[in-house]
Computed example of a mutant assay.
Amino acid sequence: MFRRRKKKDEPVTPVEADEVAEDLGDEDAEPGQDGPYDSSEAPKDGVHRLDLGSLLVPVVEGINVQMQGDQQGNIRQVVLIHGDSALQLMAVAAPRTEDIWDEVREEIQAQIHREGGSVKDGEGPYGPELHARLKGPKGTVQARFVGISGPRWLIRAVFQGKAAVDDEAAAVLDGVLRGVIVERGDDPRPVSEPLPMTLPKEVAEQARAQAAAESNGARKPSPGASAE
């Protein structure tokens, strides 16, 4: 069943953190039918979501949103920070009929071992997951890797800090994760290729305005004779 999404230019307000679980629910959905959602099954919940291209992420009061890119300047993942916890999100392409999370977990485990960390298998609300201790610039970081499969996509979610080991600390970030909508698109993509992400419209406009202001400020009028 197709559902219409809220218009992007419609006035919206952030969701309070303690209302995440209630506001992200779809009143038409059956119990246990939480997200993340494919765009073809997006709920009509009235929640304002940050449009990042392949991911639409609920805006929640008290959560800081950061974008991370690669050396070529492509945005690869979004990081949500809440108190002493963080949640990294990225979506990758997947086959239509095959779940690739088992394969991806093996790749993550190998990478963690190569970088000197430790990791073990775990089980969580989304199924098999990884519990890891990563070596960071400021010491050891606790991390919990979660994979969520949808139609031709896989979300890789990494809870860090307190959220990796404490369900209560992870509750707000997990609520946001369950409200994410994935815009896969119809383009064919290699398996595990990151789905393209973009800056939100309001952020991009702000960046352009700031760049224009800095450019105009740098252009000082050259001295010369005044007209009489």
Rank of each mutant, 00 (worst) to 15 (best):
R96T: 09
I81Q: 14
L195P: 10
D84N: 05
A207V: 03
R49A: 12
A143M: 06
P151R: 12
P43N: 07
R189G: 00
K120C: 03
M90R: 15
D18G: 01
P36L: 07
M67T: 11
W101L: 10
P125E: 15
V20W: 01
L80C: 08
P36C: 10
K120N: 09
K138Y: 07
R76C: 12
F2M: 07
S85H: 02
V47H: 06
L87K: 12
P151A: 10
Q160P: 00
G73P: 05
V165A: 03
L195F: 03
D70Q: 09
D102T: 09
Y37F: 15
G62S: 03
K162W: 00
R178F: 00
S40E: 07
V65C: 06
Q33R: 13
R3S: 14
R144H: 09
R152S: 13
E183L: 02
R49Y: 11
R3H: 14
W101A: 14
L154K: 02
K8S: 08
P151H: 08
I108K: 13
G139M: 03
V165C: 02
K162I: 04
L52M: 11
A42S: 11
P58K: 11
K162A: 15
Q66L: 14
R3Y: 13
M197I: 04
D28P: 04
V59L: 11
V47W: 04
E228K: 11
L173M: 09
G117R: 13
P196R: 09
G73E: 08
